[in-house]
């Protein structure tokens, strides 16, 4: 650095002090940072919200037993939301069954992350068609009739249940999105195929 350059720099600094520029650089700098921070925080908050909080009527149950047994099990929900179950899981690879399933096998599928869609045996054929179309498009789901259901359609995952009246209810899609292999799954990574194939 030559002497003249340093002198010029000193002069500039003096000028900046005496001329009292409005500090636009600083104002823009901090405004932009502030805005960006606000957007980032909002975005992070919105994207971290679990999807399940938006499902009205969702029933949750925690602390369910998970032992294996070949004997019949008395469940306290209908359809059961979890509990002890048969060593064989019911195949739940986008499967539509036309007969009721054994609870003890179906509960094992829930443990593997499946959503079990049950319906009244007399559900209207158009409703059945809409439901089975959904099931066939989504792995880790299965569907079966269930006698004496207290709602036309019931969706069940491990520890989560939702009763709906109509196959076009938008909560069905949200339930699938939230709970197919969802965070409630006790045994993530376990298969849905290769299980019990018949009702």
């Amino acid at each position: 650095m030559s002497k003249s350059t340093r002198n010029r720099a000193q002069q500039q600094r003096k000028n900046a002090l005496t001329e009292r520029h409005t500090p636009w650089g600083g104002i823009i700098f901090f405004t932009v940072i502030g805005l960006v921070a606000a957007v980032a925080v909002t975005f992070a908050y919105l994207s971290s919200r679990p999807p399940s909080t938006e499902i009205a009527g969702l029933v949750e149950k925690d602390g369910l037993a998970d032992g294996h047994t070949t004997s019949p099990v008395q469940y306290d929900a209908s359809p059961p939301m979890g509990g002890d179950h048969d060593p064989a899981w019911q195949s739940c690879d986008a499967r539509v069954y036309d007969r009721p399933l054994r609870n003890e096998n179906a509960v094992h599928s829930l443990e593997h992350g499946a959503v079990w869609i049950t319906h009244r045996p007399d559900l209207h054929i158009s409703q059945l068609a809409a439901l089975s179309q959904r099931v066939k498009a989504v792995d880790y789901t299965m569907m079966s009739p269930y006698p004496d259901l207290d709602s036309p359609i019931v969706l069940t995952a491990w520890g989560r249940q939702l009763k709906v009246d109509d196959a076009s209810d938008p909560r069905i899609g949200r339930f699938l999105q939230a709970f197919v292999k969802g965070p409630q799954t006790p045994e993530k990574g376990a298969p849905c195929n290769g299980g019990k194939e018949t009702a």
């Binding site: 959904r134 498009a137 989504v138 069905i172 197919v180 292999k181 993530k188």
Partner: peptide, 17 residues
């Protein structure tokens, strides 16, 4: 499976594969 968990995104797309 671990990626989908880490990304905090659904494990399924109900609109189909």
């Amino acid at each position: 499976t671990a990626w989908l968990d880490a990304w905090n995104v659904p494990h399924t797309d109900p609109r189909g594969p």
